[in-house]
Amino acid sequence: MDILKSINIVIFWYISPGFRELFKTPSPFGIKVNKQPSISNNTIENPEKWVDLYGDYLYKYAFYRVYEAPVAEDLVQETFLAALHSIKDFQHRSSIKTWLTSILKHKIIDHFRKKSKEQQIDDIELHTNKLDDLFDRNGQWKIKPAQWNADPQKLYGQKEFMEILHKCLSELPGRQASAFILREIAGESTKEICKILDISTSNSWVLLHRARMFLRRCLEIKWFTHEDDRE
């Protein structure tokens, strides 16, 4: 009986991926028994290197969505820890960077979800005064939109413009910022945004409208010179 038991153990061990990894033998059945991350891949084997390799990229990614350095740092840390936790699930169909970014994306959405719950004051109704100044009592433009004549492709990446763009984004109040970032930068649908922020559909339209109105005004003041329109 004992002999049978030992033979069993040996066979089991022989076909196990751990053994093959140790002695570099091919799968005895010619098929992959267990799809493990390839150990030959340097970076997946050395998570210590992740911070140096992907830390800045992920941090920037997070920062330009949350606009608070400590929050962005925490999100990056959570991302790396979550990645370590699920390292076995890593599929080599994507790069490590893509994989880490997709984890970070989920962390960012969670962050918006939590933040929205914490926001006691309903900023859907607040922060309207400044924008209402743009129109007169009859709802006609009082401060008229200027002609921008700008190509996003050309402006994008220009240091001064990017600084102003980020400044304007960081000045967006509470849920307006969340809604805009989720919609236009993260590319979520309004349906998804309503779920994340726990708001009604019409509230999501109001938030997005206010955010866009604020941003275009902010860019116009800070970047585009206001041309006089007296026609």
Partner: peptide, 22 residues
């Protein structure tokens, strides 16, 4: 314009503002 710029922002986090780093 805002929408296009935001799309660009979501596509390339890398090249914009090298000063932002961990």
């Amino acid at each position: 314009f805002l929408r296009k710029t935001a799309r660009l922002l979501s596509e390339s986090g890398e090249d914009s503002a090298p000063s932002i780093q961990l």
